[in-house]
Write a protein that binds this DNA or RNA. Sequence first.
DNA 1: GCAGAAGCTGACCGATCGGTCGAATACCGT
DNA 2: ACGGTATTCGACCGATCGGTCAGCTTCTGC
Lengths: 201, 201
Amino acid sequence: MPTDAQTHARVHASEELRQVALEQFSTVGFAASSLQQIADNAGYSKSSVLYHYASKEALLEAAIGPAIDAMESLVAEFIAGGRSDAARTVFIERFVDFLLGNRLAVHTFVNQAQSLRGIPVIERAVVAIRALAESMSEADAPLSEHLRFGIALGGAVYTLVADATFLDEDHRTVVDGDEIRTALIAVLSELLLPADGRTTR
Amino acid sequence: MPTDAQTHARVHASEELRQVALEQFSTVGFAASSLQQIADNAGYSKSSVLYHYASKEALLEAAIGPAIDAMESLVAEFIAGGRSDAARTVFIERFVDFLLGNRLAVHTFVNQAQSLRGIPVIERAVVAIRALAESMSEADAPLSEHLRFGIALGGAVYTLVADATFLDEDHRTVVDGDEIRTALIAVLSELLLPADGRTTR
DNA sequence: GCAGAAGCTGACCGATCGGTCGAATACCGT
DNA sequence: ACGGTATTCGACCGATCGGTCAGCTTCTGC
């Protein structure tokens, strides 16, 4: 009797390939990932990959598209809700949940957007991120205000995935998901909510 | 009569190639950069590139090695100097100057370390970053403390290069180098210096 | 039980990859 | 003017890239 995971996996080959591809894209990079590698890791042939997805680009679209959809609606919601502290607080929480639920996808399109310009699904992500950046602070806000957002976004994204690279195994597995969520919300709130006295410091 | 820049550039072909390669590696990615592209961009043939640098990996080493050297001594200095607020303040300033002076190299090895594991020069960078991470906060410090460091490092690095990707041209060129330096130091100090009341919040 | 659709694969394509080699060319001290 | 060294380049190598295609198997509706 096969395990549940195996049964599930073998049922939808395309979903299985999507997952394997996402892992490859986020760790090795899109350009450095070959269809052959992805096929091997998933236990299929390269031809099968191209049967389920018309091209390598289509596979990328399938892998990170949903996460970008989620981010787009997240940003749209925040923009519609205004810039108040209360709205920001709600947004930060949802944003952290989004990050935690889409670690690999977010890492992929944030980290590699620069080198993948021109691919439609990447362009969508760039637009969404720009919209978010512009919505977080007024255009004429001081530079440190813009920097604060950049550091918060880039730092949060980076931290969630850099663990695997820079932390040794001891520290990696110990941490609890909920604990990360709480700590991340705390630090982002510090950065993105106007704290007392900061502007006059 | 050729311009100064051209004259200078043509004198040391290897230095010219190193610079072009660094730009390619940081923007397009190491794996996605081909020796042919680099050669074309520098105005040489692929064979000439391989004459000056024994391999693509050797070219990477030449491109980012010096920056890693600088980071290593920076970290060693900080570790030797202790974790006091004063030492941290000095370190933050030097670290920011290091980042601003080595944007492309830092972006390359921080962003792509994961996918380039096994390459000696990358492994050196990973060790240095780990040492820095462990020196910034006690091993038994709360998770938010570790997160704060990760966000500070990843965020600072990311911000310095993501501009080109996510900011529109309007915002990109206006900013002054000194202004960035000051703002970056301010935000990093916020994150890395124990602020009053934060731990009890 | 049978036809057709869906799934999967190996063989193959032109292009490009990193890298080697030998022949030119440019530059140099003598 | 000459010999040698430094530099550049084109031709070429095996390997791998993304992608096409024809054919084989498996599943499904009737």
